[in-house]
């Protein structure tokens, strides 16, 4: 065998290692869109809150219910977009979307996220909602760090940033809304763009 053949061997080894252990069909565009949804949702919540004319939120109020629906819509749209674009990207790259790797990715991601989600809901129902923004950021960050070993590497750093924002948010709970906007809006757009430039565009 000549040098070129060995080079091909090394490429094949790397390719198989990555393909079999990492889910690479994550789309940068879905990150950007998730950020835009989050910013739109936040703007809507801010508008509702301003219109209510109070500087606090009452749990049984109409405003609070609208904000919950608003949050839910943002989350649903983000997930739907991520799935839709991943399916598209996987098809384009001739990869199978639902395999061992994507299952592991999902398990690693959902375990901290669901734990956090349920914990936050319990806290809200017992009227401890002061740290909701902080908890959302922290658990989302942990989910990203945990899932990063099964997908594009730099997702880990987005996770660390979300955790730090969550902790800062716990120190300054009055600014929870703005930390949330920064973590779920701005950071998603920034990171989505980075992934898009690094992984999507060259194809």
């Amino acid at each position: 065998m000549n040098k070129e053949e060995y080079l091909k061997d090394i490429t094949e080894i790397k390719n198989m290692m990555n393909k079999s252990s990492r889910f690479l069909s994550l789309s940068g565009l879905s990150g950007i869109l998730a950020g835009i949804y989050a910013l739109t949702g936040a703007a809507f919540a801010y508008y509702l809150f301003e219109k209510s004319g109070r500087d606090y939120i009452i749990l049984d109020s109409q405003v609070f219910r609208y904000i919950l629906i608003d949050l839910f819509v943002v989350a649903l749209l983000s997930i739907a977009t991520a799935i839709f674009l991943s399916v598209k990207k996987a098809k384009k790259n001739n990869e199978i979307l639902w395999n061992g790797t994507s299952k592991r990715l999902l398990t690693a991601f959902m375990t901290p996220l669901l734990t956090g989600g349920i914990y936050i809901i319990i806290k809200i129902f017992t009227h401890h909602y002061g740290l909701t923004g902080s908890l959302m950021l922290i658990f989302y960050g942990l989910a990203l760090v945990n899932a990063s070993k099964y997908t594009i590497g730099n997702v880990k750093y987005l996770g660390y940033i979300e955790i730090i924002l969550g902790l800062l948010c716990a120190i300054f709970p009055g600014y929870g809304f703005w930390f949330w906007v920064l973590g779920f809006g701005a950071m998603h757009i920034l990171y989505g763009s980075l992934i898009y430039l690094k992984h999507d565009r060259q194809e």
Partner: peptide, 14 residues
């Protein structure tokens, strides 16, 4: 053989 190489590459990381 490249397929054998592929099998080994997959198994060492999984």
């Amino acid at each position: 053989h490249r397929i054998r190489l592929g099998i080994m590459s997959i198994l060492v990381v999984n």
